[in-house]
Simulated scan of single mutants.
Amino acid sequence: MRVTEKADRSAVWQGRLRPLLQSYDIEIAYRAPLVVERLDIMRQQPWVRIMSPRLKRRRSSEEGVLPHVYWDNEDFPALCLFDPDTGEWNPSCFLADTTVPWSLDWLVCYEGWRATGEWTGGGRHAGGP
């Protein structure tokens, strides 16, 4: 991963992950939350997007056209990597220990879902920002 943008409280990293069948260019954006933002985990989490190749949708899937994403950007939705109600992640977690491996796991589940229509990652999609 390499830093492509950096500001006072934020940074963007880009890199490549290869879960099983193909490689994906990803972008991780993170902004350290202000004290008031710490009340809402959705406003403090890192945002991961698959930049290339674009994520494909399925028309007929019980999980929806593309499961476990936040549709804040139609072309590059953010990945839903954890359930904010479980306390799995907080701003003191290292992105290299959580966000990057969780992104890789998400991509493994995505490749399986593309092949079978079944999302094997479990979890509960927590809704969008």
Rank of each mutant, 00 (worst) to 15 (best):
M1S: 04
T86A: 01
A96P: 05
S10A: 12
I41W: 05
V65E: 13
R114Y: 00
D40C: 02
P53R: 04
G64P: 14
R49D: 07
D72F: 00
W106P: 15
C80D: 05
T98F: 00
P129E: 05
S60Q: 12
E118R: 14
W47R: 11
W119D: 05
L81D: 09
E88G: 06
V35P: 14
S61L: 03
N73V: 04
R43T: 11
R9A: 06
I28A: 03
D40H: 06
G64K: 10
W89D: 04
F82N: 07
P53A: 00
P129A: 01
R2E: 14
V12Q: 11
T116Y: 00
L95V: 09
D97R: 12
I26Q: 01
Q44I: 04
I50L: 07
S92I: 07
W102R: 07
T4K: 08
V12H: 00
L21M: 07
V35Y: 10
R38S: 07
T116F: 01
G15Q: 14
S52R: 14
F82T: 03
T120P: 15
C80R: 03
V48H: 04
P84S: 02
D85A: 10
E74T: 04
L20I: 13
D105N: 11
V48P: 13
D105K: 13
W71G: 04
L66Y: 05
T86N: 07
P53Q: 03
V65M: 11
E62M: 06
G122I: 14
V108I: 14
D8N: 09
T86S: 09
T86E: 08
Q14H: 06
R57S: 08
T99M: 01
E27H: 03
